[in-house]
Amino acid sequence: MTPALSITATAILAVATKVDIAVFAACVVIVLCGAIGVVVSRNPVHAALFLVLTLFGMAVLFVAQEAHFLAAVQVIVYAGAIVVLFLFVIMLLGVDREENVMAEPLRGQRPLAFLLGAIALAEIFLLAQGTQWATGATQVAGPAGGPGSNVEKLARVIFTRYLLAFEVTSVLLVIAVVGAVVLARRYETTATESPAAAQVEEPQSPRSEAPLSAAPPPAAPDESHPDESHPDESQPAGEPDAAPSGAR
């Protein structure tokens, strides 16, 4: 088993460089196209789709780095949940109109963005000088040691060494969920109780005066009740995920 594996490893290494470079080049094109598209798109939905493209390119890069689990999670969580929620909000709020990207909401925002971008890029290059990141080796720290799959290693590290950070993150998520629910509930009680209370107080009086026009009022709160529970129930699903994604 072991010699066969090592032969496979050397055989793969021999082709690896070419294939790796090709994969890397393709991914770079995809990621950069997506990233530029996000910034340049006039339509928010298009921007979100370009973001998905970028995330996909990143996932493929993760696979090329043998971080299969990370790639899968990238697609499931970011492409599958977070961007879907972005799109959801865009569609629900109806802000999916074309926008003029040349308009500056904040004065001096654009030159500042260029400056900060240049600083970040310089920082990355500087860091890349210090360590040997740009050697073309697949991993920075070598293959993650020991037997077992990606998932096992990740799980071991998360549940031992980084347990506190992991649990604190989960608490953060719970706080976000609770906060979203609290915000949503308060809105609901003020909005729906007033017509219901008004109706309880005087149920008969309008009906006796004008039966034709009075038929809708008793029906309206009834019909609106199941409808109004939608946004409140889908918001805890929507908001908490969107909030931590911004925090990350």
Binding site: F69, A72, V75, A79, G80, V84, N150
Partner: peptide
């Protein structure tokens, strides 16, 4: 694939 059944979840989310 090494991610196995996670691939299904990824695809269903796409």
């Amino acid at each position: 694939p090494p991610v196995g059944i996670l691939f299904l979840l990824a695809m269903s989310s796409i």
